[in-house]
Amino acid sequence: MKNKSLVSINDFSKEDYLAILETAAEFEKDPVQNILKGYVIATLFFEPSTRTRLSFESAINKLGGRVIGFTDAASSSVKKGESLKDTIITVANYSDLIVMRHPIEGSARYASEVSGVPIVNAGDGANQHPTQCLLDLYSIKKTQGTLENLNIALVGDLKYGRTVHSLLMAMSSFNPTFNFISPPELQMPSAYKSSLDDKGIKYYEHTNLEEALQYADIVYMTRVQKERFSDPMEYEKVKNAYILKNSMLEGTKDNLRILHPLPRVNEIDTDVDSNPKAYYFQQALNGVYTRQAIIAKILGLK
């Protein structure tokens, strides 16, 4: 994967993911290394995402690299009407790798075609956010010891949730069983279900959160947002039905871990936080190691 851009989770093979996860585990043991000394990494955030940006910048700083860039489009030349192409070509002159987040879908793919240096997509609108997906895989592998044959419950907004779609596609290489738990309006799109059918992967759909918890090795929570409902009454009906509470975790498997891409609003009750099965804060920390691994692999340093 040296010099290759990471735009979409589909760009990398199963072997590539596994190699990244292995390197991420090395960084978890030894996170401060000087391998990026002399390297300049650009972080171009055309829309603000403090959490993702800090995770990348922490990863780069721990490896001794320098960061240039901007934190939102308002403080850059984009505001003056510069095209994405011109911005990327210019910044590629000053850097060894570009991390970019952009509200327009497909922007990262396009950037990878005009850039002289590799692009790492840190989110292009509702389309892809592959580093989130890789850190999810890392968290699953770390807590379960394997990615193979797991029972994974995806909860909340399965229709628009970019992270659940990427996770579903990536996990499909590892023979999982899925339980989809969502309000009827936000069910998993049929395109994803038929791709599972093609691969012979089992999945079950539920509207009741508690139905599938007892079987799960991983529960992946996402937020049910009001603006996704065409009928506000529908939202009012379901808004409290997809909140995970500590009491619901009774009788679940010992190895169960709860993941969430964060930020959380109220979909996981704070009384879950002290349960050892809550893993979402550790998951965010894993993002730093995973991003260290992605950058080091792409630059050919690991």
């Binding site: 095209s83 994405l84 192409k85 509200p103 327009i104 879908e105 497909g106 922007s107 793919r109 396009y110 609108g125 509702a126």
Partner: peptide, 12 residues
């Protein structure tokens, strides 16, 4: 058909 696609927002 996606109005948020780069091809509908830049000269691509």
């Amino acid at each position: 058909m996606n109005p948020k696609c780069i091809t509908n927002n830049e000269n691509v």
